[in-house]
Design a protein around this nucleic acid. Structure first.
Lengths: 346, 346
DNA sequence: TACAAAAATGTAAACCTTTACATTAAGTAT
DNA sequence: ATACTTAATGTAAAGGTTTACATTTTTGTA
């Protein structure tokens, strides 16, 4: 049976209060007593019971991180950033994946209640606000890329609109006109933002966005692969494919290669997120840079801000800018195609 | 202030014992009473305090997962597998990364003590056995790919030796003789096993392993990239590079391409792990398949086996076989090179 | 040396559950 | 109706900490 504070106290010939005091470093206890207690603790391999401590302190030193999914490098980067930040504060992470399922979100939230001091929730697909309602108001919550107008929670959202618009503009600048996009899952707010950006860029340049150019994927490599195959099967296929995340772009590249086309000379392809592997694949991928691990870090730091009461009652709403990351998977459209057109026209 | 069981009891006009009973479903309480209590619980949004419950039950419903690192797709797959398994049991995951630092491992272990019902520890680089010593003996622990002969803990280890040997044999079969390897970090047992496998294959075929062919990386893309660059700078560079994980292989591919060489016609490259992205990059990567997410699943399932006392006292030592995964990044050595040799000889 | 003030330590309540055991209520058979 | 059995509920202890407040010890000063 594990030894408790009373065992330590007995063995050291003091009261439990004194032991508790040296444990918490706070109060002044005579140096000699402290040493004696410390050595007893060491000897007995005593460690305070977190449940008992948590019970009275109402602190857990853990933070909940609830992600929609765990596939791919994106989320692992978020976790990495969050873990780093959390460790800096001596805290730890309870990670859970919801698979975009409201029931699982609810289960995770229920579990976390009372077990964490704060929650970072990423839920681009299901509206989680209702689920948050029966959490104590005092629990700091940061919404990461959630669809919400709610100002009651702290929010961090990536500028998917701006990033996609910029990328689309870039493709237009390169001369592309037939630009296909591969979107994320249905009802996914991240995907919707990016789609909005794409359409806005098209409209701004007086092209009417062609809905037949918008193909629905689900943010996985396999979906990118399959959709790209379909796209390439068309007679006059697009000259550029804009996948709404890098995983799908990677899948698409495979499909393109299998079709015997070269990138970027035959077709341009770009992604979104700039996951670490994006710069290593070949050709290195032109994409929209998102500070992924920083997303995790920011969310955690925000949570600590909240907890330390610097900003007890004011919610913060951070809008994370993206940056075009130009590499080698996109190219000025082949002037050949103009020539071809002429030839065809003749 | 959060409502407690006494608030519920009062409002429902019963004792806390009865409330507790309906909460735990176990004992028989009159249907009518149960309903009344249930509705009060709903109304008050009452949720039992996990700390209090944990204090008396000595159960946390959480499992600790301590990983050496969080970079790349490998670990995210392990987490994914573990999370899946854990959710099936209604449990949750406390994830932490140790950065291969003994102090961080110790801190994480200390934190987890009393906060989890079991620990899965992956620590290929630092010998963690000493650190485990001041954990209660009753706490189930699974060692994942740790360097250990200890039979006191459950272990799961990948057959790195066999996998690397098989891959090396395959390369030899393709006619390669100058096979460079890029290893993982110093003192990393996974890397060492793979190196042992490589050397064994060479020796078996009566080639003396040439130590100048063994380059030390650290399992990151960047290290693969940099080392491959060095390798290619040699006059008579190897005809094949065997990176000890896929991330490094991906980095190496970038370096190879930058050098203007084609894969696999000019040089063959292969990896280890078969991370999801490996089949999507081009050329699709020949690698050693490791059931990564299953590693997480297996570890968790083992832990539950232990906890449910099916196998209370017998430790299990699982050896996970790997499988050669042949794709397109390796090729029979160009017979041209024989011709070249002759030309040079003339 | 005596006394006040300051420092060190101790006592006991509180945190919120679960559960063994005690008690009361509700059936059941005579 | 009575005695007995079973079902339903209640009481109180236990689990391991922290901390306000009480008490004792030490230190400093007159």
């Amino acid at each position: 049976m594990r030894s408790s504070i009373v065992d330590v106290a007995e063995k050291a010939g003091v009261s439990i209060a004194t032991v508790s005091r040296v444990l918490n470093g706070s109060d002044k206890v005579k140096a000699k007593t402290r040493e004696r207690i410390l050595s007893v603790i060491q000897e007995m391999k005593y460690a305070p019971n977190p449940a008992a401590r948590g019970l009275i302190m109402k602190k857990t030193e853990a933070i909940g991180l609830l992600l929609p999914d765990l596939h791919g490098e994106f989320f692992s980067e978020v976790i990495r950033g969050a873990d780093e930040a959390v460790q800096k504060h001596g805290y730890h992470l309870i990670v859970s994946s919801s698979h975009n399922d409201p029931n699982e979100i609810e289960a995770a939230l229920r579990f976390m209640r009372g077990r964490v001091d704060a929650i970072v929730l990423m839920s681009p697909q299901v509206n989680a606000e209702i689920l948050l309602e029966n959490l104590p108001k005092s629990l700091p919550i940061v919404l990461l890329n959630c669809r919400t107008d709610n100002t009651h929670y702290d929010t961090i959202v990536i500028d998917g609109f701006g990033g996609a618009r910029e990328m689309t503009n870039y493709l237009l600048d390169l001369g592309h006109r037939k630009i296909a996009v591969i979107t994320g899952g249905e009802n996914n707010s991240e995907s919707e933002e990016r789609l909005r950006g794409y359409r806005a860029a098209m409209t701004d340049r007086h092209f009417t966005p062609n809905h037949s150019m918008e193909h629905q994927g689900n943010f996985t490599e396999i979906s990118g692969y399959e959709i790209a195959r379909e796209i390439l099967r068309q007679k006059h296929h697009p000259t550029a494919i804009f996948a709404f995340n890098d995983s799908m772009a990677i899948g698409a590249i495979k499909a393109i290669r299998e079709e015997g086309l070269r990138i970027p000379s035959d077709i341009s392809i770009c992604g979104f997120d700039d996951i670490p592997v994006a710069k290593y694949i070949s050709p290195s991928m032109t994409t929209v840079h998102v500070p992924i691990s920083e997303l995790g870090t920011m969310a955690i730091n925000r949570v600590f801000d909240r907890m330390t009461k610097h900003s007890k009652d004011t919610t913060a709403h951070v809008f994370v800018p993206t940056k075009l990351c130009l590499r080698s998977s996109c190219k000025k459209i082949n002037t050949m195609s103009n020539q071809e057109k002429e030839e065809i026209a003749v």
